[in-house]
Simulated assay, not measured.
Amino acid sequence: MTNANDASSVQYLFTFRCPDRLGILSKVSGLLFEQGAFVTESFHYGDPQTGTFFARIVFNDQLLKFSIDHLNDALTELASDLDMSFAIRRADYRPKVLIAVSRYDHCLNLLLTKWRAGALKVDIVGVVSNHDDCRGLVQWYGIPFHHLPVTPATKAEQEAKILELFDEKRAELLVLARYMQILSDGMSRRLAGRAINIHHSFLPGFKGARPYHQAHERGVKVIGATAHYVTEDLDEGPIIAQEVKPIDHAYTAENMVLVGQDTEAVALASAVRLFSEGRIFLNGNRTVIL
Rank of each mutant, 00 (worst) to 15 (best):
D92Q: 07
Y93P: 07
Y93A: 15
R94G: 08
P95M: 08
K96Y: 05
K96L: 08
L98N: 09
L98D: 10
L98W: 12
I99Q: 06
V101R: 09
R103H: 13
Y104L: 12
Y104M: 13
Y104P: 01
Y104K: 08
H106D: 00
H106W: 00
N109E: 15
L110H: 03
L111T: 02
L112Y: 14
L112Q: 14
T113N: 13
T113A: 14
W115H: 10
W115G: 01
R116L: 14
A117P: 04
L120M: 05
L120Q: 04
K121P: 08
V122P: 05
D123V: 00
I124N: 01
V125Q: 08
G126F: 11
V128T: 01
S129G: 10
D133T: 03
D133F: 07
C134I: 03
R135F: 01
R135A: 06
R135T: 00
G136M: 06
G136F: 02
G136A: 09
L137V: 11
V138E: 11
W140Q: 13
H146R: 13
H146I: 11
H147F: 15
L148G: 00
V150I: 08
T151Y: 14
T151C: 14
A153F: 07
A153K: 12
A153Q: 15
T154E: 12
E159C: 04
I162E: 13
I162C: 11
E164S: 14
L165S: 01
L165A: 00
D167Y: 01
A171S: 09
L173S: 06
L173P: 10
L174I: 08
V175L: 12
